[in-house]
Write a protein that binds this DNA or RNA. Structure first.
Length: 423
RNA sequence: GGAGUGGUGGCCGAGCUAGGCCGAAGGCGCUCGCCUGCUAAGCGAGUAUACGGCUUUUAAACCGUAUCGAGGGUUCGAAUCCCUCCCACUCCGCCA
């Protein structure tokens, strides 16, 4: 959520940046509502003030045995007016909040302006795509030959886009999760294992609700949602809190299963593990003081990249343009890993700073060392990494002509020293 | 799921069955100052958040309003009375 005071003072900037995203928003309507709200509140506060004073007076007069019937009747009428005003105020505030909740974040100044993913900007490249002496297979073929992923039976017990990992597939996935968590822990990320089901407040806090309800699996009778990313549970762990400055930055890594309905992506990536309703991810989450968030974003990105370097998987990093960036984000880097079968890079991580946008929604604040000032914190997060897609990258990049997989060096300790996965 | 008890400021804890003097006693903690050879003790002051008054800049001070789990109701007036919900704890039942 954006700060209404900021919007008032910088309406032109807000307009432009919202337009750069390709989003529409009725700024004039919002400002008009706010002006109305202020006026009405000032008036009503005055009425309440008088009522409070007179009410005390009534108490005193009654104790002294005086007549209060007339003054009481007058206050009753004043009370009716106050109630009416409060009701109107409530309606205005609800409307404003609804608007603000549907207004996306403003991108940072250095974010390139562009209309969609075609205008994202290359930030860096690491490693060289490997040359194969044979035609590299797609991961679904490799996996089915090795009998380590069972797409059909996953679908049988749930529906399409659900997969069962079998044998070495399951072990490989688990090894990747452990490698990621251990590697991040070494860099000072504290591991968290948090609920997969959260309430609507949490979803609102990080920006999934109200706008993206369609993307969420919901447990209707319990009013809980399955998390689409651990970002939701981990960030909201701190909702409503005022954190002492000296406890920042908070850095967490968290493994979770993630659940996404993938509404509107029918026909896209239907084969294989790329787009699943349920997938595993190790997420990095940070809460920082405002002045530290830029540096922390750079560090976050490097931590995510570090996993790919550790696994020796070629990748590139893109800076998302204003038209492709996520709703709550102020700046996002996507990391894309090389997939030989597709002869292209595919997204495997998304690292973002939300500045104070999520913090304002979730009310995550910090108290400065002087003990006085309270302000909104900054939140950041990034995948470190999407585990299923990492498994895809390992299978494709480390495949051999005979259909076997060479286990990346870094992963061997996690698989009892195993060097090759074969049928 | 059944029965019961309870949710008050950073924490503990009064007040809630006589509704007004309660944004809330007291204690602890913390901050600043004083005092002290150092430490400890002691003394004094302060110590919630949001919104509004403030408007074309920022901050402080001051004033007002709201908040005693959340929402609603009764009342001139509610931490105190009534209703609904949420949460925690205890016992029983059930279950990884």
């Amino acid at each position: 959520m954006l700060d209404i005071k900021y919007i008032i003072a910088n309406t032109d900037i807000a307009r432009k940046k919202t337009a750069d995203r390709g989003a529409n928003f009725d700024f004039d309507g919002l400002l008009a509502l706010d002006a109305e709200r202020k006026k009405l509140q000032a008036k009503n506060d005055e009425l309440k003030s008088e009522r409070n004073t007179v009410s005390k007076e009534i108490g005193r007069i009654r104790k002294e045995g005086g007549d209060i019937s007339e003054i009481q009747e007058k206050m009753r009428l004043a009370g009716d007016e106050i109630d009416a005003n409060d009701k109107t105020l409530g309606e205005i505030q609800t409307k404003m909040e609804e608007m603000l909740l549907n207004l996306p974040n403003l991108v940072k100044d250095e974010v390139p302006v562009g209309k969609d993913e075609t205008e994202n900007v290359l930030y860096k490249t690491w490693g060289e795509p490997k040359k194969f002496s044979f035609e590299p297979k797609a991961h679904w073929d490799i996996a089915e030959n090795l009998k380590i992923l069972d797409f059909e039976r996953g679908t049988k017990i749930a529906k399409s886009r659900f997969t069962a990992y079998m044998g070495m597939g399951a072990k490989l996935e688990r090894a990747l999760i452990n490698l990621m968590l251990d590697t991040h822990a070494e860099r000072g990320y504290k591991e968290v294992l948090a609920p997969y089901l959260v309430n609507a407040d949490a979803m609102r806090g990080t920006g999934q609700l109200p706008k993206f309800e369609e993307e969420l699996f919901k447990c209707e009778r319990d009013e809980l949602y399955l998390i689409p990313t651990a970002e939701v549970s981990v960030t909201n762990l701190y909702s409503g809190e005022i954190i002492p400055e000296n406890e920042l930055p908070i850095r967490h890594c968290s493994y979770s299963a993630c659940f996404r309905r993938e509404a509107g992506s029918h026909g896209k990536d239907v084969r294989g593990l790329i787009r699943q309703h349920q997938f595993n991810k190790v997420e990095l989450v940070k809460i920082t003081a405002p002045e530290d968030s830029d540096n922390e974003l750079a560090e976050l990105l490097d931590s995510a990249e570090n996993i790919l370097r550790t696994l020796e998987l070629p990748y590139r990093v893109m800076t998302l343009c204003s038209g492709d960036i996520g709703f709550s984000s102020a700046k996002t880097y996507d990391i894309e890993v090389w997939l030989p079968s597709a002869n292209t890079y595919r997204e495997i991580s998304s690292c973002s700073t939300f500045v104070d946008y999520q913090a304002r929604r979730a009310s995550i604040r910090l108290r400065r060392k002087d003990g006085k000032k309270v302000e909104f914190a900054h939140t950041l997060n990034g995948s470190g990494l999407a585990v299923g897609r990492t498994l895809v990258a390992v299978l494709e990049n480390y495949q051999n002509e005979d259909g076997s997989i060479t286990v990346p060096n870094a992963l061997r300790p996690y698989l009892g020293g195993l060097e090759v996965i074969k049928a």
